[in-house]
Simulated assay, not measured.
Amino acid sequence: MSAAGTCTRCSWSRATTRWGRPRTGSPPAPDAPGRSPSRGPARPRSRQSNVLSDRLRVLVEEGVLDRVPYQERPVRHEYRLTPKGADLYPVLVALMNWGDRYAVDVPPVRLVHRGCGHPAEPRLTCAHCGEPVAWRDMTAEVEPDAW
């Protein structure tokens, strides 16, 4: 446990430390590079571009994405999911489902099952029996060797 009483070794804490906080940084201080007291601020860079670049960099560093060149002149890259990134898919779909239910009036994206062409609804199921499970249907058992 940390001084604040937060578990620093459990999976949830480690995952949210990596993905749960914004990686946008803070606005530059008045004496930051790019500002000159005599000439005013430097030409503004696109804040959205910087945020996207920072997020992509972190995802590459964490092994969630691979940065792959697809053009030589000028050099351009695309980002591809790694196996580690693909394992995040159920988490992202669950967050999207939650946002569709509570954060928007009309969901902007619909997931469709390629096999049958019908809308797909994410569900959590038991790996053993295949039955759907909700949070009340499970218990958390501590694995002593993990601590």
Rank of each mutant, 00 (worst) to 15 (best):
M1F: 12
S2W: 10
A4G: 06
A4M: 14
T8A: 14
R9I: 09
R9Q: 09
R9M: 11
C10K: 03
S13L: 06
S13H: 05
R21I: 09
P22S: 13
P28D: 02
D31S: 15
A32E: 04
P33Q: 03
P33N: 04
G34D: 11
S38I: 14
R39M: 14
A42H: 11
P44H: 10
L56F: 04
L56A: 04
L59C: 01
E61A: 02
G63E: 02
G63F: 00
R67T: 01
V68P: 01
Y70C: 03
Q71E: 00
E72K: 00
P74D: 02
E78H: 12
A86W: 12
L88W: 07
P90V: 07
L92C: 14
L92Y: 11
L95V: 15
M96K: 15
V104R: 10
V109D: 03
V112I: 13
H113V: 08
H113F: 08
C116P: 00
C116A: 07
G117E: 02
L124H: 14
H128K: 10
H128I: 11
E131Q: 11
E131M: 09
V133Q: 10
W135T: 15
W135P: 04
M138W: 05
E141F: 12
V142K: 15
V142S: 13
E143C: 12
A146S: 15
W147D: 15
